[in-house]
Structures are given as structure tokens and as C-alpha cells.
Design a protein around this nucleic acid. Structure first.
Lengths: 242, 242
DNA sequence: TTGACTTATATGTCTAGACATATAATCGTA
DNA sequence: TACGATTATATGTCTAGACATATAAGTCAA
């Protein structure tokens, strides 16, 4: 019967098995906790070898759609409902993607031995040098975001000689520091005098704040705080599956 | 030589192959664009069958760490650098996870025929009924967030008779509407009179706003706006891989 | 009833093959 | 030189087995 899902095209068998099961889960026909057929039952139903259904089920398990338990069987997982994929693009890319002209302005750049505050912010223990950068991004000549960044020079020595007056440090790092891990913290503040002036908004206007810590195999690279006018900027996150 | 990574424990072979390759990519030894060894080379190196290395490589491909091209080989992918996984937990779960006591209060509940504004907000075309809910969540008796929600009753008929005076609509939906897709928009506003009173903060204080639209196979289920005191609430997103 | 032991079983991993298929590379031709 | 046909090859999928392993369920004794 399941074989009768015939049509002219043919996705591979294991993909069809996976899609069949996924569909039943997504439509609610097999609710969370439901035991899906054993591998040997699916083998019989689809008339294929066990490795084929195993591949389908393994992928579903990897996608957290089902949970597999030895001796017990495979079960539809309860939806997680808590993770969304948030795209935090490079600001320049984000602005040009909107079809607006990107502007960048370096406000300040200071190379110094890491202060206690710097070390706390970067989460490093040893002494060393850092670069502190302040800059502003604009879209169509309207302030878009102000950036306050710290780079650990012991992790990224070449940043000491990089020319941040032309290239935003975010873009520069993106091209010079290959693999990273990061943590973003999003919050809201009201603009103080300095922020209001930099963003050309009223004092007391809402701002969206993104604090980002980037590291590479347990080594902190950079800490950055981005301030956006809260009423004009929006972060969009999408998620799928529960 | 790769076999010489011996230790007492033994993760399965394909996992070790996967980990070996992943490590070389993450340390930058194999930079983006680098061609990783052919399957038959890995077969020779690890002394196993092709299916075993294939499984390792397939999982790496599924995780977007490598790209596989027929006839050409497998290549390290360029880091994406733009998506972070943002955990947006059920508020009750979030608060209890912090070890604080959760409080819930229904402010208003209205069942009505969908107005034009309702339909616009839910993105539905046909006439139908909706429920509008206003409620407040608190942690240790301090206001934590206020919620303003709309549920499409044609998608979730049973919501009409649900008792939202005890259970938050978010939790209720979580348990009654299995699989969904959602979009979150995050922004910042300053508290107006009504919000300030509901959150027990000053008028003009910053608030983090999450607008969430949830649907299930192209069918809108609910639209919700959550307002958090911006200085006390933070959203954390983590990402890995560039 | 409870705890310890045994057994049955579903999944986890792996093999040594096979044929299919997309495509980079080569070769031949206009 | 440029383009079209051919070939070689790496991946994609699949099989029909195998043994390993965790564990639910049953068994038996204290």
C-alpha cells in the first residue's frame, strides 16, 4: 500500500520512507510519544533491506523528530518549541541586501594593554594587548548602528595592523578568522546622550542591543556591542519543527 | 596512523572518522574549499568498508560542514556566519528553569468574529472566529512579561473551550498543537502608560518585544506579542560553525 | 513485594559487494 | 578554437547478511 504512493518521478526509497514518516508526524497522525513501526515492519512494508529504513530513521533521529530506544522502538518526539534560527548577518551585507547604500565611519581605535575591564569582557585571564574600536554603520546616510568592539590581539595578532578606517572590523574578522563559535545576547535600553547623538535619535528612544562574543576553540576573539534604533531595526528568527 | 588515535574507550568507527575530519576543519587545518580525502582513500586509511566512511561523510554533509560533489569529491564548506540558534522557551519553563516561582494572570479573553485587523495580523483571508487574549507572566511575583495573543479558531477550534484562566495560552497551545513553524521578530520600544503599569516599570523604560507568528503547514495558528522589561530580560543565542 | 538474574528483541554498527548517476576530463570534430 | 560526444570516476543508493549492545520484560528467589 505504501508502495502504491507511485508516481512517475522517484526520489530514492529511503527519502520516501523518511518523507512518509515525517508527514505523519507533521500532520499529527502520529502524535508525540507514538511508537512508529519497527524497522523490520518497515522493511516488510516497503520491501527493502533494513539498512535502507535504518538510514531513513537515523536521519529523522538526527533531526530530533524521533527518538530511538534500543529494545523499545522509535518514538515521535515532543516538539521542542524553543529554538529558532536567527540570522544575524554582517551589517554591511544586511544593508546592501536591503538595496540601501552602506556607509561606514571609524570613530575611534585604541591599541592598549588589556585592562581589568577588558579582560573581564573578553573572558581572558592572562595579560595581553587588545584593540578597542568604536564605529558607526549607516544606511543611505542614516545611522543604522553603532558598534563598540574589543579584539583580543593574542588571538588575532594580525588585527593590530589591519586598516579599520576603510573596512568594518566585523567584515575584516569575517574574512580573517575562519571558524568561530559565538553567543549573542539581545536586550533593550534607552538611548543615553552619547548614543542618541551617534544614532541621531532622541535621548530616551528605545535601542535594541546585541552583545556578541566570538571565540574559536575556547579562545575568545572579540566582544562587540551593537546598538540599533529599536523602532527601525528588527531581528527576524524563523524556526521549524515544533 | 589514524588508527593510532587509540585509547581505552571506543566510540564507533564512523564516529571517530567524523570527529577526525571535523577536528581538522574546525582547527583550520583543512580550510574552506579544501578537498577532503576521497572515500576510497579513507577506506584505505581506516581499513573499513566504504559504507562506514560514507556514513561519516554523509553526517558531515548533513551538518553543512562539507559539501559533496559527484565525481569531484568532498569539500570543506565556507562558514555561513549568519545564523544563530536562539532559544525561545515557553515562558513558564524559562522561569521555572531559573529556579523562580512562576505566576500567571489572565487579564482578558475575548471571542469574536475576526475583524479586518485580526485577519491582517493572522494573515488569513476568510472570515472566521478568533480569540484575543491578554495575560501577564510573573517570576517571584514580579511582572516578567505581558502577552497579547490572537488565536485563529478555524485552525484550533478546541481553543474556544480551553480554560485560559489557569493555563497560559502558550503552554496550552504547546500541548495541543503539535508541529509548527514560526517566525519571530525582535524589536525594542519604550513603555507607554499601559505597558508600564502592566510590567510595573517606569513609563519610558525600554522593553524588548517579541512578535511571534506560528503556523502549521501554511495555516496560521496564533500571533502573539510579548513585552519584557528590556533591562532585566535577555535573549541568548548561540551559534557554531563560522 | 522487592531485588537479582536471565532472556528476548530492537536498535547500532559494520561488511563486501552491486548498480545508478552526475559530472570533470578527455578526445574528436567542425 | 570551440563545441559536442565519450569516458572515467566519485558519490548516491541499496542489499543480505553479521555481530554487538542496551534494555524491556519475564523469571525466580529472598
Amino acid at each position: 500500500m505504501s508502495l502504491a504512493t507511485d508516481s512517475a518521478d522517484k526520489p530514492t526509497l529511503y527519502k520516501r520512507i523518511r518523507a512518509d514518516i515525517e508527514k505523519r508526524i507533521l500532520t499529527g497522525e502520529w502524535p508525540p510519544g507514538h511508537r512508529i513501526p519497527f524497522e523490520h515492519e518497515l522493511v516488510a512494508r516497503y520491501g527493502c533491506s533494513r539498512m535502507t529504513v535504518n538510514k531513513a530513521l537515523s536521519e529523522l533521529a538526527q533531526a530530533d523528530l524521533i527518538e530511538r530506544r534500543r529494545r523499545a522502538g522509535s518514538f515521535v518526539r515532543r516538539p521542542q518549541h524553543q529554538s529558532a534560527v536567527l540570522k544575524i548577518a554582517d551589517i554591511r551585507a544586511e544593508i546592501t541586501a536591503l538595496g540601501r547604500s552602506y556607509g561606514y565611519e571609524l570613530i575611534g581605535r585604541k591599541l592598549r594593554a588589556a585592562t581589568t575591564a577588558d579582560r573581564a569582557r573578553l573572558g581572558i585571564k592572562k595579560a595581553g594587548k587588545v584593540i578597542a574600536i568604536a564605529c558607526r554603520h549607516s544606511a543611505d546616510n542614516v545611522p543604522f548602528a553603532v558598534e563598540d568592539r574589543l579584539i583580543d590581539l593574542s588571538s588575532v595578532p594580525s588585527a593590530a595592523t589591519a586598516d579599520f578606517s576603510r573596512e568594518p572590523p566585523g567584515s575584516w574578522l569575517l574574512h580573517h578568522v575562519p571558524w568561530t563559535e559565538a553567543e549573542h545576547t539581545i536586550s533593550a535600553i534607552v538611548a543615553d546622550d552619547r548614543t542618541a547623538e551617534a544614532l541621531d535619535i532622541a535621548v530616551g528612544a528605545p535601542c535594541l542591543v546585541i552583545d556578541r562574543y566570538t571565540w574559536r576553540s575556547a579562545r575568545t576573539i572579540t566582544a562587540v556591542r551593537l546598538l540599533y534604533p529599536g523602532d527601525s531595526h528588527r531581528l527576524v528568527a524563523r524556526f521549524k519543527g515544533g
